[in-house]
Design a binder for these strands. Structure first.
Lengths: 243, 243
DNA sequence: CGGAAGTTTGACGTGTGTCAATACGAGTGG
DNA sequence: CCACTCGTATTGACACACGTCAAACTTCCG
């Protein structure tokens, strides 16, 4: 359950998140309209929606995606606790993407029209909003690099490693294992590959003992191998803002 | 030549760009350290640079890209006049992408450390920075959708149409034609295809009379055909901020 | 227990990549 | 004005990663 007051938000006390001033937290608390629950598979935001709200993902996983008329779907990035969602540039022409839940999800809701107050009175938070937007763009950049340039094997290794790292930052990993709610179809849609080819690649990595992925559990056995398969560039993780 | 004062910036008077208050323009003018010229092929920002500046592209074209150790390169998006560049989340770990000029380029330079003043004293401009960041993310989203889900033919049609539309907004199109500085290698690196396959697709579209692309000139003959090849979704263009 | 959703495998086709060679265009220097 | 050259564009032959179709199997869950 989400806490009633942002000041006592257990997410905020995690070392991953930077600290805000009491005043800023009070403002966030006041701006927050409340929390909402969605069940797995529900859409928090549908492509084309206009006049949607802003959200911070409090618990659970979701993903942001775009789709074409003929139902081909591209997953743009995965959303995990602390991610800020719903800010886009086409408020009048409808959301250019959708957001769908992978698990049961709880979000904090912020009305868009209060955003101006935030920018006007809390420059620190305004900067945080920009930071989060740029951060998400960085992840999409990474995904575009993968889908555009890496082979199927490299793509799978890269995404597994990326998810594993994010999950570890959020303290979701125990004994190299975590709950992993994506189906192979989701992975395929994220990597721009067919379901069947995705399955073959996963099988191969499974057989080679790099990781196991079964029954919604991901267990990473050989980070080293994963890293070299992915041609991964290591980089320290800066403290991120939380709105 | 870039003007000495932002108040008389000819870019700003274009209908594409929204108006700012005199005070805001004065602040931008004061924040601007000056202008810089780059020749075609020069890198405004190199992957891994730390402590870089912020830029607004004043004239010319450039592109943002990431590359892997083995020199595979993914172009993330194309930059045209009015684009805001250089804001990213990893100031201490080095820029996660590079920016390279396609033509001779002139940019306005803004020191990053003044950004805090901007957020603190000019919430309208702070919002504009966020807007521009989110807008660029939207373009990367579109590119990821293309690279992940569309066929080679669809990808080429989509990108040609997108560039054509942006160029028209900037008044760069005369008689359905514009200066187009990308080589086929650039297009290939943007669409995640090999140079040779890109060439074949271009030839086919050329033969079918959809558009011609030769000697750095792009001439669009059949927008209708292009649109249907691209499965394009029409959307009105909102006024964009200019910093 | 039954049905739906998700996973796995095989057979086969094709879009796209790779290799190699030629042709073209724009500069450069003689 | 002509060689020369280098980046760019074009084309053919061939290979393979990946997509498609089809079917069985396994897991989940009411």
């Amino acid at each position: 359950m989400a806490p009633t007051k942002c000041a006592t938000c257990p997410l905020r006390s995690r070392p991953l998140f930077k600290t805000n001033t009491d005043e800023e937290i009070a403002f966030i608390n006041e701006m927050r309209r409340g929390t909402l629950k969605f069940s797995a598979g529900a859409q928090i935001l549908s492509q084309g929606d206009d006049d949607s709200d802003l959200y911070t993902l409090y618990s659970g996983w979701a993903f942001r995606f775009k789709e074409l008329e003929d139902a081909r779907r591209q997953i743009l990035n995965i959303l995990m606790p602390g991610d800020f969602m719903g800010f886009h540039v086409s408020p009048h022409t409808g959301a250019p993407y959708g957001i769908e839940c992978l698990t049961e999800v709880e979000v904090c809701v912020f009305p868009k029209r209060k955003l101006w107050d935030l920018f006007r009175n809390h420059p620190g938070l305004a900067y945080d909003v920009t930071w989060l937007t740029a951060h998400e763009e960085g992840i999409v950049d990474d995904n575009l690099l993968s889908v555009g340039q890496r082979s199927g094997m490299e793509r799978v290794a890269t995404i597994v490693l990326a998810v594993y790292k994010r999950a570890r930052q959020l303290d979701l990993v125990q004994d190299n294992a975590l709950d992993f709610p994506l189906t192979q179809q989701h992975i395929a849609d994220m990597l721009g590959m067919s379901l069947i080819h995705t399955n073959r690649v996963l099988r191969r990595l499974h057989r080679d003992g790099v990781f196991t992925l079964a029954r919604k559990k991901l267990r990473v056995h050989d980070t080293r191998a994963l890293r070299s398969l992915a041609a991964w560039a290591e980089a320290p993780v800066p403290k991120r803002p939380l709105i």
